[in-house]
Nucleic acid binder design. Structure first.
Lengths: 213, 213
DNA sequence: CACCTCTATTGGCAGACTGCCAGTAAGCGT
DNA sequence: ACGCTTACTGGCAGTCTGCCAATAGAGGTG
């Protein structure tokens, strides 16, 4: 009775198309709930396919999760990069403008950003750690470029900028999540913190550099 | 043949004693490998008990994990508190000394600290988030007290100090894990960053405070 | 238009793990 | 020595992941 001469029971999609569809569905679910609380069958059903197909495309649940996190991390970073490279080539954006731009992008991708920086159900997971770490390093490179710092002569700059990244993460959370800071207040902190540290602290750090003969 | 008139097949321990034993075993395993890669039966066997007992004491695997992380987070914090309260009451330790003390404690509890920090990457888990967040707030309170800041008149101080906490986390990792900074260099950064920000940035942040009638 | 090949997709099986509970025995009090 | 408390065990039930052989869309070919 129920299945009287219907059409095809399932549609056959292009490889990449189906892959993107599953990935998007997984992204929605993993954004809402943590890794362990989302089952593969749930993802499959939400995507309108079977669990088997999910494994066919991604191999394992963890691999799928890694892809999702990679997406989550990349999308804001790419947005910033796009916007920056859209500016005239010979006109490097000012530090103030860069911070403002970054804040707007993060505000727009609020959910994704919050999940991304706190991703990884498993602390000591190698692959996950690498993804997040690489994203942070990429951001640091951007910052170094915008500020016009000389990374080669003073490698300590990179550590300092990464430290500022940690500062920025928390300040952003204080603004977006905990709401103990307004956007303006957060902006003042983000704009002012790094230049101050570079001016006053960096020389002292370099002075402590161990001499190598 | 094998079991010819042996003694008791298992020993009956005091409630808290057995609990501590299981907790210690779990702590070792969770420190080595991530949550998902450690099974309850493995913990139970390593502790010399059955899996059922583990559930009897902690209810669920996740609950056991939370207890472990709580321990991991508390132990360094408590060490610092002990050392600080050990100093004469009327003699508040200087900021430099506090930082140095903190660095020594972290260096001693290297493993525990690194795991505890990266356990924070358990984003959407409410209970886990609360544990780590509370630890950070506690540390912030300590810092505010040592620096003698007035938290009531300027609530923004707390957000700034928490931000410094993020900075400190990354700088410490750069020193202990990634080794792009020596201990001396990290010390210079940690000692110098916060006072500088308090002096130059805090007034500007307060100036941006929204007026409430 | 009928057939045929390709492969995206399904459905179900095997192993592993967690959570739970009823029964068992260790050891203390009387 | 006996019984009572409860720490502890052992196994069952449900759920989940990973895997693979079978199936069926869909486009190409004569």
């Amino acid at each position: 009775m129920t299945d009287t001469k219907t059409g095809p029971r399932w549609s056959r999609l292009e490889h990449d198309e189906r892959r993107e569809q599953i990935l998007a569905t997984a992204r929605v679910l993993f954004t809402k709930r943590p890794y362990g609380a989302v089952s593969t069958i749930e993802i499959a059903e939400a995507a309108g396919v079977t669990r088997g197909l999910l494994h066919h495309y991604f191999g394992t649940k963890r691999a799928l999760y890694l892809e999702v996190v990679k997406d989550l991390v990349d999308s804001p970073v790419l947005s910033v990069l796009d916007a920056i490279t859209a500016t005239p080539i010979d006109q490097i954006p000012s530090w103030e403008d860069s911070v403002a731009l970054w804040m707007d992008v993060v505000e727009a991708n609020r959910e994704a950003w919050l999940v991304a920086i706190s991703a990884g159900e498993t602390g000591s997971d190698r692959a996950m750690h690498d993804i997040l770490d690489e994203a942070r390093e990429r951001t640091a490179s951007q910052v170094i470029a915008v500020l016009g710092l000389d990374e080669k002569r003073t490698p300590e700059v990179r550590a300092l900028v990464c430290g500022f990244g940690g500062f920025a993460e928390v300040v952003t959370r204080e603004w977006l999540q905990r709401r103990r800071l307004t956007k303006e207040q957060a902006r003042v902190l983000l704009v002012g913190a790094l230049p101050g540290m570079v001016d006053t602290l960096l020389p002292r750090v370099i002075a402590k550099r161990e001499r190598r003969s």
